[in-house]
Design a protein around this nucleic acid. Sequence first.
DNA 1: AACAACCATATAGTATGGTTTATACTTTAT
DNA 2: ATAAAGTATAAACCATACTATATGGTTGTT
Lengths: 120, 120
Amino acid sequence: MLINELSKRTGVSIATLRYYENYGMFKGVSDEKVRTNNYKHYDELVVEKIEIIKGAKEVGFTLAEIKDLLENWHSEQLSVEKKIAVVNSKINEVDAKIRQLTEVKKLLARCIEDIENGMC
Amino acid sequence: MLINELSKRTGVSIATLRYYENYGMFKGVSDEKVRTNNYKHYDELVVEKIEIIKGAKEVGFTLAEIKDLLENWHSEQLSVEKKIAVVNSKINEVDAKIRQLTEVKKLLARCIEDIENGMC
DNA sequence: AACAACCATATAGTATGGTTTATACTTTAT
DNA sequence: ATAAAGTATAAACCATACTATATGGTTGTT
């Protein structure tokens, strides 16, 4: 699919997609058979990556962190074991975020107690 | 306590604390009895607020969102019920983030399957 | 008294994550 | 064939969240 469709599929603006591609988050490929243009084509794997980018960004991961993950995930250099280790370490980070959110929830629950006790 | 101690207590740099105060996240008060300076004093409530700021930021809330929460939490204008409603709505947002993180975890688990199946 | 350590304010600079604009070529619809 | 819509690249611009620098006053120690 071309960038327009990719944008529609993912809900991410074309400008942002180009920004991501330029940043190195994923790569589209030009069709070798067509030499009149260099339109880039994106596959389902790119869609998957973008879903990860969207979710991870939403919960506070930076593009640099996400890029690092995606790069290793598809690296030819790394062994299967190492790739899995990289993804697993990201899963651990996600768990840490969940714990942090649980902490924030506790703080907010304390806020409510404070309010009920007229302390604010 | 003065800003130096506040910084040490919270682990947030003095520059950042001033930025937050200027942004309206919290306010220190000058001692009325001392007219020779306008050093600002911060209490335990400020420390609590900063803990919330730190936690909420970490998981992707913007300063504007957090400010809004903190402002309502301590507003004199709002009734107890409304304050509680504001904090509760933030708790709901936190729950949404947790769900989002769970989604990201699923996507990452799918990555691992892909890797194991040699699809990457 | 003098010197370091601390506080306040203002302004400028930086990094991240985009968005907008300009230019130019390609494809598609009529 | 020509206008509209789509694609690519580059550069300028923008908001957010700091960080650093400059200036000047205060406090505390010796």
